[in-house]
Amino acid sequence: MVEKRRFGNLVPHLILLVGVSIVAFPVYLAFVASTHDAATIANGQMQPVPGPHFLENYYRTIFVGTSSSTREPVGTMMLNSFVMAMGIALGKILISIISAYAVVYFRFPFRMTAFWIIFVTLMLPVEVRIYPTYKIVADLGLIDTYAGLTMPLVASATGTLLFRQFFMTIPDELLEASKIDGAGAFRFFKDTVLPLSITTIAALFVIQFIYGWNQYLWPLLITTKDNMQTIVIGIKKMIVTQDALTEWQLAMATAVLAMLPPVVVVVLMQRLFVKGLVETEK
C-alpha cells in the first residue's frame, strides 16, 4: 500500500462484495426456485429462501422430465452434453497436437500453406456458416449423431497455434539427444514432447470442455430427436414464453444442473483455466 488510509480498505471490500453479490444473485435465485413447488413460483409468492421440494424437483428433472412437454429426462441430456463436450475437447487436443508437431518438427513442401489453411479458420466462427455447414452434415447423414454434433466444432486453429507456440519453447538439444539415442519421430513425441506438454494439454482441455458443454446454435440445428438434445438446448424448450405452463421449478433445476459441471471445472482447476484462457487468446 502506498499510503495509509483512514478507513483501511473498507471501500474496495464493499465494492467487491456488491460485485460478488450481483454476480451470484441470479444463480442463487435459480437454486431457490428449484426447491419450491410450481404453484408458489407461478403465484409470484416465492421468497428468496430455499423451499422444501429440493429432492422431489431434482429427482423429477433428472429421471422423469417435464410433464407438459413430454421431453426427455434431463439425465439423458446431460449425458449428451457430456459426450459432446468430451468429444470436442479430446478431439481438438488430439488433432491439433499432431498437426502442430508436424508443422514444427518437420520440413516438407507446403508446410506453411498447411499452417495458413488452419490459421484462417480462426476467422470463421460456426455462426457465419451455419446453413452450408448444416447442409454438408445432413448430406453426410450425420444429423442426430454424436459425430455430427462434434466433428464440425473439432477443427479450430486455437489448439494448433497454442501447441505450436509451446513446441517452439522446447530446447532443440532435447531432439538432438533423442536422435543420438536412436529415437524416431514417434518415440520423441511419446517420451519427450508429450510429457512436457501435459500442462498445456490440461489448460486447453479445461477451456474446450467449457466451450463444448456450452454450445448452443450448432446442437439446436443438428438435433431433431429429443433423445439427442443437449441440456443447454433442452432448457430453452422447457420455457414456454408467455405461457403459464412453464414448470419453472424444473427449468431452474435444469439450469443449475447445466451450470454445475463447467463451473466446478473452473473453480477446481482455476489455475489451469486462467492459463488456458490467457494463452488461447494470444
Binding site: 454476480v23 441470479p26 444463480v27 435465485l29 435459480a30 467449457i210 458443454w213 456450452n214 448452443y216 443447454v232 438446448i233 432448457i235 430453452k236 420455457i239 427449468a251 439450469a255 447445466a258 451450470m259 463447467p262 463451473v263 471445472v265 473452473v266 473453480v267 482455476q270 483455466f273 486462467v274 484462457l277
Partner: peptide, 14 residues
C-alpha cells in the same frame, strides 16, 4: 470469474 463457465443461453434463462 466463475460466470465465464455459464452457457450464454443459461445466463439468459436466469
Amino acid at each position: 470469474i466463475w460466470p465465464y463457465a455459464v452457457a450464454p443461453a443459461i445466463a439468459g434463462v436466469l
